[in-house]
Design a protein around this nucleic acid. Structure first.
Lengths: 236, 236
DNA sequence: ACCTGTCAACTGGCATGTCAGTTGACAGGT
DNA sequence: ACCTGTCAACTGACATGCCAGTTGACAGGT
């Protein structure tokens, strides 16, 4: 079959990699596995298996799965089972729409209210991205990419914005893992980030919004192309 | 003291008013109480009290509080207690920012993709709002107001948008309860809704976005004025 | 009157016991 | 071979038991 229905719990990150309550750590470990597609869409999440894997009881596992269910990454059928949600093109589009709405608003606001310190942090991030791209450090560039967006969220002065943006965009983040970014896409990303940065520097809110919209729309284009070349990747 | 620290559990809605699992029902009942300010900010949520009130065990109550904590309505101090979050002007502004971002994007999209059926539903909603306003039915108008916004969310075709908008805007919704809308505000609301509707009808995305921004900004203005006239309502 | 150390009552986090609904394998009839 | 009724194994939901950390009242020293 095209998609495995089993899931090796050994791939789950150890709880010691996270902090907080046991339930919070189980949640983070599972979310990481789901978003990285290590836990493939459709796979059954067996609580007893998780309990032995993490060496915890069912309580923290149940709470973690309940939270993932509330966020739409896991679907729970009462008295039957829990499984990782299938990839869905409509879920992706919806997540992309909501995330884009929040990020456009954030970029526009940051352009208007940014401090010199914010601008400096963003400039350092741009510099770092270019260095990593030149080194071909793809994994680190991915992290720097995310960090750039988080810097923009932070510069709005809204503490919860980053977390909320992540939640509404979860289905986009997961689908994005299907794309293996080549050197070309990395360079395009930097160009798009540069446009956002320039608009923020110039305190041009409308331009920052437009540049952010353009940037996030690239992922949508790539996913749409992928779904056409590989029908069956996404559920109806 | 200005704000009660006790909370009469008798004000909680019965679980039979909701559907789903016990945990889901407890969650809805508590959320309703928090958003309506029946559960005043800062009040301690005592689990044993809830258990006797709802006649359930601690499990569903714990899950409900965990979810409210994840959404930011309740703050949990491990081994100490859980309390309803205090009203915060910054939380309000943040929620208003995020909700406005999503609603502006929704209004813009609906203006562009609306069907005739969508337009008809919105027109009926406008008509109903005017009738209720003429009757002075304030509580029903409040519900019709919310329904109008939900119709716009639904018309985007994005199934989760409405729920996500509600979540990111929770702190705005709660603070809004401090405002007792007079006849004047109701008429202003209708005027603002009409502007949104007209722009959607005219398929003018930019106008719909602007009208929605203007509409939601009114609440911010009123809350800001309230916080100035009554300092101490909001925590630092 | 004011600090301060003690301790009992309370809290949330976690482990575990129990139960009813779901499901899939399988036996038996067609 | 196919349909079908049965049932055992599994699941999630909920109840309950236990423990450690927190807190506030209070006694005793200053």
């Amino acid at each position: 079959m095209a998609m495995s229905t089993e899931f090796d719990v050994k791939k789950l990150a150890d709880l010691s990699d996270f902090e907080g309550s046991l339930a919070a750590r189980v949640y983070q470990s599972l979310k990481q596995a789901i978003l990285s597609l290590d836990a493939p869409p459709g796979v059954a999440l067996r609580k007893p298996e998780m309990c032995t894997r993490f060496e915890v009881s069912r309580s923290p596992v149940a709470e973690a799965i309940a939270r993932l269910s509330a966020e739409g990454l896991v679907e729970v059928t009462p008295q039957s089972g829990s499984r990782v949600c299938y990839l869905s093109l409509s879920d992706f589009h919806e997540a992309a729409f909501m995330r884009s709405a929040l990020e456009q608003a954030a970029a526009e606001r940051v352009a208007e209210v940014r401090s010199e310190a914010d601008l400096g942090a963003l400039a350092r991030s741009m510099h770092r991205q270019k260095l990593l791209a030149a080194d071909g450090a793809r994994e680190e560039f991915y992290l720097a990419d995310e960090a750039f967006h988080e810097l923009i969220h932070a510069a709005t002065g809204y503490a919860r914005l980053s977390a909320q943006t992540e939640i509404v965009g979860l289905h986009m983040t997961r689908a994005r893992r299907l794309l293996l970014p080549g050197q070309r896409r990395i360079e395009d990303t930097i160009t798009e980030h540069q446009a956002i940065f320039d608009a923020i520097k110039a305190q041009d809110g409308a331009a920052a919004r437009a540049a952010m919209a353009l940037h996030l729309n690239q992922v949508t284009k790539l996913i749409d192309a992928l779904s056409e070349s590989q029908p069956g990747l996404f559920k109806p």
